[in-house]
Design a protein around this nucleic acid. Sequence first.
DNA 1: AATAACAAAAGTGTCGACACATTTTTCTTT
DNA 2: AAAGAAAAATGTGTCGACACTTTTGTTATT
Lengths: 222, 222
Amino acid sequence: MEKNQPVSITLTDRLFDRLQSAIVEGEIASGSKISEPELARQHGVSRGSLREAIGRLEARKLVERKPNLGARVVTLSYEQLIEIYQVREALEGMAARLAAQSMSDKEIEELQQLLQEHGRQIEEQQGEAYFQKQGDLDFHYRIVQGSKNRHLIGLLCNDLYHLLRMYRYQFGMRSKRSQQAYDEHHYLLNAITSRDPEMAELLMRQHIRSSRRNVEKMLLEN
Amino acid sequence: MEKNQPVSITLTDRLFDRLQSAIVEGEIASGSKISEPELARQHGVSRGSLREAIGRLEARKLVERKPNLGARVVTLSYEQLIEIYQVREALEGMAARLAAQSMSDKEIEELQQLLQEHGRQIEEQQGEAYFQKQGDLDFHYRIVQGSKNRHLIGLLCNDLYHLLRMYRYQFGMRSKRSQQAYDEHHYLLNAITSRDPEMAELLMRQHIRSSRRNVEKMLLEN
DNA sequence: AATAACAAAAGTGTCGACACATTTTTCTTT
DNA sequence: AAAGAAAAATGTGTCGACACTTTTGTTATT
């Protein structure tokens, strides 16, 4: 959530951020081909800088590139979404396990406050899904940070979460289970508070699996 | 192990491969600064191409880059190695679980043959560590492939394994436990053969944990 | 002699141009 | 008129040059 550098300094950085948002939010259609000259012109930037930005997008699996054929925005598919959830289950499960060992008492306390806040929001604005989604991400985000494992943090926060946001935007995935998610968060946080790594991992994995099942059901309705 | 494209086509690709090997094998010292003009000259290539290659190395966490300050080869540390093993445990555990569900009978059979081959090598050339390491990687590699999850495959085979190889090269990590590793592989393969995902994941995670403990012990001796 | 201010050198970020590959269009041949 | 070959157009890969930033080296001041 926080950045050391005030804002992105280099041109390529800013361009990368803009393109990433544009892709995640569907402004640049998924599956569409990217024309380097055109995009460069649109953003008033040289092709070289654009290329570096595209390279980073490729590393984050937001675009695919083939030599001499150019880059395309990644195509979303049901299968890929399932794959992402499987990776997420593995990584966040481990994150929860480590968080139970490594989070400071202060961090845990702040997380409890955050969760209370969520509880209030659920009672007040019944079914206001957006805040819930945002809150859900916040919660997971903090646990991942709490793992203190920089690799894990990078993998989840820099790579997976953006892909996941992309699916949420473009598949119109809104959770109809904020109450259940809240409960699951609660159990999980209890395990972390009592410093039980095994239980924390178990509950996190269950939580993500049930979230995945919810998504599957939702997509099959279409 | 195999590539669709016969060899890397583009200059940047080849350069990237060469640099990756050079870094992994310690030819370019870990922690050392990378001078773009010099490296470009050494490899007879323009700075632009070099920069793209460095960008990919950065995405694979083999180099770190700071705006206007340049790139350095990543610094190896005990802590980071532990972090890698934790991520590996999570991801390969999931890979084993999925492999138990998704590997074809043919793939499983080939894996059994590979393992028998390892068994023979252990009996014959007692303690020839190199082949064992190579074999170990092969075995894990195939299980990851067997998960059929492209994200997982990319994360492990493109990112983590190279980092791991780097540590093996530069920390001189040779396993003195080829017999035990072989046994653990055997149990794991049994679980996969009997299509037991739960057990497969469990055994894989134990296997990697015990491998990590071995590494810890080895490093504490220095 | 130590430090501050300044100037020179080296390094990174960005750009525009050219070379080569791919795609599209046009022209030939049957 | 359809199919194939040649040619034009578009797009990607690579390069060298310039602008700006950081580092190094020098001079001046106390």
